[in-house]
Simulated assay, not measured.
Amino acid sequence: MSGSVDECITRLLALAKRFNCFYLSGFHSSECKPFVVEGYQVGLIRPDVMKELIHFPEVFHVTPGCVELNPAFRDYQERSVKVNEVLKELRKKNTFITLKGWRDECYEVKAEFNTTSLLKMDRSATCLFGIRNYGVTINGYVRHPQQGQCLWFQKRASTKQTWPGKWDNMVSGGLSVGHGILETAHKEAMEEASVPPYLLQNLISTSCVSFFFESERGLFPNTEFVFDLELPVDFVPENADGEVDTFEILPVTKCLEKILSPDFKTTSSPVVLDFLIRHGVVTPENEPNYLSIIEFLHVPLQTVYGRCHNKMKENGISLSNI
């Protein structure tokens, strides 16, 4: 690592804590309440959001123990429509900054990733409910004959609704309704970086990273399905959807400074950090906080909500009497 060892250690661990800021603080407080649908906890809701949902009692039952979607809504379509009506009303009133980035693109809301979806919600609104989001990220790398292993980055367009102008992974995108993991990886690679299909045959699924971030927009319990893609030395990515300003390639030895910069998108740094760990740039030998950092890259988002809901039951709190 460049710079003094102590300085890099402090900065790298601080970064890992920063993209898990909610997991380390707000998650363990009692301020946020479980968001429950059909008896399953699918999210967490902050007090500022609860204060607005109280005005929609026919859709959301706000109680001392949780916020429950009206159980009278019996199927996926009805739940989705009722929630969307509330969100459109809140958007019309400019209640939440995140709804200014309305996408007309929805994410599924599930008890767990591999279970049947309970409803869909516009992606801009999921952070208001602490819904677990899923996405794909592709590490495009090159084995350069002089510079060694190098990694491609993109600079997000200044017109992007979130993190405009920040540096980011070469390719990434959320799993929207109707799209699978590999399908999304291929779609985003072609749209964001014009990666041709024959190169995508080399795409390798390598890992997942998960973290729990919070910003002024809301809560972000995110899981990224990570792919590595070795690219030819002469390949240069080109954007095709207008969402990228430029691309840059860096030797992996300079990538730590890249993700530690305030110009890098905080919630994209976990994937780069994971890549640098897997490829031997960050090791137990040069990073005394190695194990802590590994844990911060794999927050157990598939079970933390379930444990919270089970704890409610163990404490004698049922949805029927709160």
Rank of each mutant, 00 (worst) to 15 (best):
I204M: 01
I204T: 08
I204V: 07
I204L: 00
S205E: 12
S205R: 13
T206A: 12
S207N: 15
C208Y: 10
V209G: 06
V209W: 06
V209Y: 02
S210V: 00
S210T: 07
S210F: 05
F212Q: 08
F212E: 02
F213L: 07
E216Q: 14
E216C: 01
E216D: 15
R217C: 14
G218E: 13
L219S: 06
L219G: 04
F220A: 04
F220L: 09
P221K: 04
T223H: 07
T223E: 15
T223D: 02
E224R: 03
E224P: 00
F227K: 08
F227C: 06
L229V: 04
L229K: 05
E230G: 07
L231P: 07
L231I: 04
L231G: 04
P232Q: 06
D234W: 06
D234C: 00
F235S: 03
F235C: 09
V236W: 02
P237V: 01
P237Y: 03
P237F: 04
P237S: 08
P237W: 00
E238W: 00
N239A: 12
A240V: 03
D241C: 15
D241A: 06
D241W: 02
G242P: 02
G242M: 08
E243G: 06
V244L: 07
V244S: 10
D245E: 15
D245T: 10
T246F: 05
T246K: 11
F247L: 10
F247I: 02
E248R: 15
I249W: 10
L250T: 12
L250G: 03
V252S: 06
V252G: 06
V252Q: 11
V252H: 05
V252F: 03
T253G: 12
T253P: 00
K254S: 14
K254N: 15
C255G: 09
L256T: 13
E257H: 08
E257D: 15
E257Q: 08
K258Y: 01
K258S: 03
I259R: 03
L260W: 01
D263W: 03
D263T: 08
F264H: 11
F264R: 05
F264A: 06
K265D: 15
K265C: 15
T266F: 08
T266Q: 07
T266D: 13
T267S: 15
T267H: 13
S268I: 02
S268L: 07
S268T: 11
S269C: 10
S269I: 13
